[in-house]
């Protein structure tokens, strides 16, 4: 067992983990943050996407020990003061989810995508979310949701 120390959604955690434990299972099973989902075993689907030090990462590709010292944000940490994040709001308003299983990963990937790209075309968003699979929506309303949120997050009024 190895000791790790990390901050998750603003809360500091010290924990003992098996060296082989994946970060996603540490979050889900030890911290009970079950919003981050597991959809595959080949790092393909992206359901487990979170932010590690502000960058999107598939938490099934990282060992928990690799997150030692990191700042982690999961879907549970996105809303603030009871207000949904603009992406959560946009996915709701643009019907960007159906079963909702891929949604946390899709939203976390989109946080990074918007933060690191200025005005994006629909095509840019499609390319940017290539690592996240959805089987329900056909992606069209996801693209619409991300456009809507990007507009809101960049407008001066939203600061």
């Amino acid at each position: 067992m190895r000791r790790i120390s990390l901050t998750v959604n603003g809360v500091k955690h010290d924990a003992m983990v098996e060296p082989r434990q994946l970060l996603v299972y540490f979050l889900r099973e030890q911290l009970a943050l079950t919003g981050t989902n597991v959809g595959c075993d080949t790092s393909t689907c992206g359901a487990c996407t979170i932010l590690v030090n502000g960058k999107s990462a598939k938490s099934c590709t990282l060992l928990a020990v690799q997150a030692d010292g990191a700042e982690v944000t999961t879907i549970e940490g996105l809303a603030s003061n009871g207000e949904m994040h603009p992406l959560q709001k946009a996915f709701h308003e643009s019907h960007g989810l159906q079963c909702g299983y891929c949604t946390p990963g899709m939203i976390m990937a989109s946080v990074d995508l918007i933060a690191n790209n200025d005005a994006m075309s629909d095509e840019d968003i499609r390319m940017g979310l290539e690592g996240n699979l959805c089987r329900c929506t056909g992606y069209q309303n996801i693209v619409k949701s991300v456009q809507q949120a990007a507009g809101e997050m960049r407008s001066p009024a939203s600061t």
């Binding site: 549970e76 809303a79 996915f91 989810l97 909702g100 949604t103």
Partner: peptide, 19 residues
């Protein structure tokens, strides 16, 4: 009409079997 199902799915509060 916007979906009633969404809030829990959008915030990680949903309960899937592995949760």
């Amino acid at each position: 009409i916007l979906r009633k199902e969404d809030p829990e799915l959008l915030t990680g509060a949903a309960r899937f079997i592995d949760d």
